[in-house]
Simulated scan of single mutants.
Amino acid sequence: MNRPVVVGVDGSTASLVAAEHAARAAVLRSRPLHLVHGYLHPLGYGVPINPYDVGLPAPSEEAQKMLERTAADLVGRCPGLAVEVRQVAGGPGATMVEESRRAELVVVGSRGLGGFAGLLLGSVGTQVAAHAHCPVLVVRPVEEPIPVAGPVLVGLDGSEPAALAVGCAADEAARRGDGLVLVHVQPPDGGRRGADEVTETQVAADAEAAELLAVAAATVRERHPGLAVEGRVLRAAKAEQALVEASRNAALIVVGSRGRGGFAGLLLGSVSQALVQHAHCPVLVAHPVGR
């Protein structure tokens, strides 16, 4: 099945930047690109006076022109790219989650400005990143150009979602021809002054981190023999802050999701949610395709 790369487009700056990223992702994967506009039912948030008169609204001519202009622009930039456009009668978040059932990758934009002041990712992006049935690329920050240099960064902690994220990150790094950086975050050691103050616990933690990174690197190299892989241990009180800071020097950061039912925050986890809200580069949320 030739699963497409799907991106939601509504004419906003964020969605048009997301479409640009989606076109690049489609070219790298040799997949078609689908531009989808999900529009809300006009009675979706109220009770109609006469429920028997309810029907699906017709697609908008203005939206169709916007989609066709976007498609023409992307084909002009990426000759040979196959682009399909369509409008779907439904809310944008629910539409993209449903589209993800048949997609290789879903791309969403972010309206965030960075920092830890509050929630910055739009509700549609949050919904899709948490509930999609395939990997989701969250494009942020919108005001910056597409990163063309820098490694793919992925955090690992030995969990199953992190293992999926590492595999996804390795595949992406191989497609881009960039290096892969495996990151494990440990709590600070309390500012020890010399080697004599190193505790048994710290030595054991360091050994565990080194083994975790070595095993992951070996697995990646077996799958992608020519890929440059580096392991790093970062020390920070909170893993999410360390990874957000590390994202400044990356072209892409990959995170896992917990993956079944429930609320968006619980699905993404605190680290993943912090990154999709505050990272300094695009974030790829790893979901199993067709899960």
Rank of each mutant, 00 (worst) to 15 (best):
residue 34 H to G: 00
residue 35 L to G: 15
residue 35 L to S: 10
residue 36 V to C: 03
residue 36 V to L: 13
residue 37 H to G: 00
residue 38 G to I: 07
residue 40 L to T: 13
residue 40 L to E: 11
residue 40 L to Q: 12
residue 40 L to H: 08
residue 41 H to K: 00
residue 42 P to H: 12
residue 42 P to A: 04
residue 42 P to N: 09
residue 43 L to R: 07
residue 43 L to T: 04
residue 44 G to E: 00
residue 44 G to K: 02
residue 45 Y to K: 02
residue 47 V to F: 06
residue 48 P to N: 08
residue 48 P to E: 01
residue 49 I to Q: 07
residue 49 I to M: 08
residue 49 I to G: 07
residue 50 N to Q: 08
residue 50 N to V: 00
residue 50 N to W: 04
residue 53 D to S: 10
residue 53 D to N: 05
residue 54 V to T: 13
residue 54 V to L: 10
residue 54 V to G: 04
residue 55 G to A: 08
residue 55 G to H: 14
residue 55 G to W: 05
residue 56 L to Q: 00
residue 57 P to K: 03
residue 58 A to W: 15
residue 59 P to F: 05
residue 59 P to K: 05
residue 60 S to R: 07
residue 60 S to E: 02
residue 61 E to W: 01
residue 61 E to S: 11
residue 61 E to P: 14
residue 62 E to P: 03
residue 62 E to I: 06
residue 63 A to Y: 14
residue 63 A to V: 12
residue 64 Q to N: 14
residue 64 Q to T: 13
residue 65 K to A: 04
residue 66 M to N: 03
residue 66 M to L: 14
residue 67 L to H: 02
residue 68 E to S: 07
residue 69 R to Y: 07
residue 70 T to D: 10
residue 70 T to S: 14
residue 70 T to N: 01
residue 70 T to W: 02
residue 71 A to L: 04
residue 71 A to D: 01
residue 72 A to M: 10
residue 72 A to H: 13
residue 72 A to D: 15
residue 72 A to Q: 15
residue 73 D to S: 15
residue 74 L to C: 09
residue 74 L to I: 03
residue 74 L to H: 14
residue 75 V to D: 06
residue 76 G to N: 12
residue 77 R to T: 10
residue 78 C to W: 12
residue 78 C to R: 09
residue 79 P to M: 06
residue 79 P to V: 05
residue 79 P to A: 07
residue 79 P to K: 05
residue 80 G to R: 05
residue 82 A to R: 08
residue 83 V to G: 02
residue 83 V to L: 01
residue 83 V to D: 03
residue 84 E to M: 07
residue 84 E to P: 05
residue 84 E to W: 12
residue 84 E to T: 14
residue 85 V to M: 00
residue 85 V to A: 08
residue 86 R to Q: 10
residue 86 R to D: 11
residue 86 R to N: 01
residue 87 Q to K: 03
residue 87 Q to H: 09
residue 87 Q to F: 05
residue 88 V to Y: 07
residue 89 A to N: 12
residue 89 A to S: 13
residue 89 A to L: 03
